[in-house]
Write a protein that binds this DNA or RNA. Structure first.
Length: 324
DNA sequence: GTCCATGTTCTTTA
DNA sequence: CTAAAGAACATGGA
């Protein structure tokens, strides 16, 4: 469930509720969801305050008040939700963070702003003006309900990744929402893979997944099997514009829920209702009426309109020979 | 039982 | 050596 819009939606709903709160206890129900193996996550997190939560690619990055960082990746079925401690503990809940009920101001995290753009470029951090219980009188503290952050992931393709003070990106590609032609065009020139396959590569561009690649290619009217290094500069420009439009629309609708995705409050996204090709095999293209086709590329379902997204890259309408 | 799934990484092949 | 294709991972729903 998690591509950029879904991950950003989790950050948007999670951060305002938990930034500034102290982690009182960590329950790790499975050690093997933490990487690197053997990390003392409980030791690192207990009694630390959450200073900031941002997104990078599909990662949800937590910065602690001591400057250390870790990220949660939702994999395919991961959920990061805010729950009451009384709420039933569902199967496959691998980690539970018990949070304090008082917001801590004034703690300083070693931070370097940077590239984490959100829906509107906001960064959730301690210093941001949040309407939370800034200075709760001590006589009232006990009445403020504490809550938990829970990580649940049945398939376990996701996990918790400890970064410590390492601030490298691990060679992750650029953020789509601040992407330029000068950045993407040379990157695409370096690979002969299908454009669809290339865009799924997080080292080439971060944050896109199967849904939004298909949607963006359709919006840009680009044939998914076109070789990445065959795209013209003009096509790349159009592609970037389409990627941004699609992602921003998806963000506005809080992501797509096909099966599992919910935000930190347990709310589903709504953008799946607005998909124009993804999961619409055989249905009429919303642009031209031709039936949407589904093919397999690199083991992944790929949805496109054979009429809108022609394989030939000429300027006007023309037909030509196909290649593999 | 079968097929499929919003993702990533390791292995194999060219 | 590198790039690309395939398999593997684990679980659940249709």
């Amino acid at each position: 469930m998690p591509e950029l819009p879904e991950v950003q939606t989790v950050v948007n709903t999670l951060a305002p509720r938990v930034v500034g709160l102290r982690i009182r206890a960590v329950a790790l129900h499975r050690a093997d969801i933490v990487a690197p193996m053997g990390t003392d996550l409980v030791g690192h997190l207990t009694n630390r305050t959450i200073a900031q939560i941002t997104r990078r690619g599909k990662r949800i990055v937590f910065t602690l008040d001591d400057g250390n960082r870790f990220f949660v990746h939702l994999g395919m079925t991961g959920r990061l939700t805010i729950e009451s401690p009384d709420a039933e503990l569902l199967k496959h809940t691998h980690m539970v963070l018990d949070l304090d009920n008082v917001r801590h101001e004034g703690t300083k995290a070693r931070r370097h702003e940077g590239v984490m753009e959100g829906a509107r470029g906001e960064v959730h951090s301690l210093s941001s003006s949040l309407p939370g219980p800034h200075s709760v009188p001590s006589c009232l503290r006990a009445s403020v309900p504490a809550f938990q952050i829970r990580f649940r992931d049945p398939r376990r393709f996701g996990g918790v990744f400890w970064l410590g003070l390492d601030d490298s990106d691990g060679s992750m590609g650029p953020e789509p929402l601040s992407l330029t032609v000068d950045d993407l065009f040379p990157r695409l020139k370096r690979t002969k893979r299908f454009i669809k396959t290339a865009l799924l590569d997080q080292k080439l561009i971060a944050g896109l997944g199967n849904i939004y690649v298909d949607e963006a290619l359709h919006a840009a009217r680009i044939y998914p099997k076109l070789r990445a290094d065959h795209l013209t500069r003009r096509q790349v420009g159009k592609l970037i514009a389409s990627i941004k439009v699609v992602l921003k629309r998806a963000l506005r609708h809080r992501g797509s829920t096909l099966r599992d995705f919910v935000d930190a409050d347990g709310l589903e996204g709504a953008f799946q209702k607005l998909h124009r090709v993804y999961d619409r095999e055989g249905k009429a293209c919303l642009t031209c009426g031709a039936p949407i086709r589904r093919i397999l590329l690199g083991g992944r379902s790929t949805h496109f309109c054979p009429a809108c997204q022609t394989r030939i890259q000429t300027k006007a309408t023309s037909k030509g020979t196909a290649r593999t």
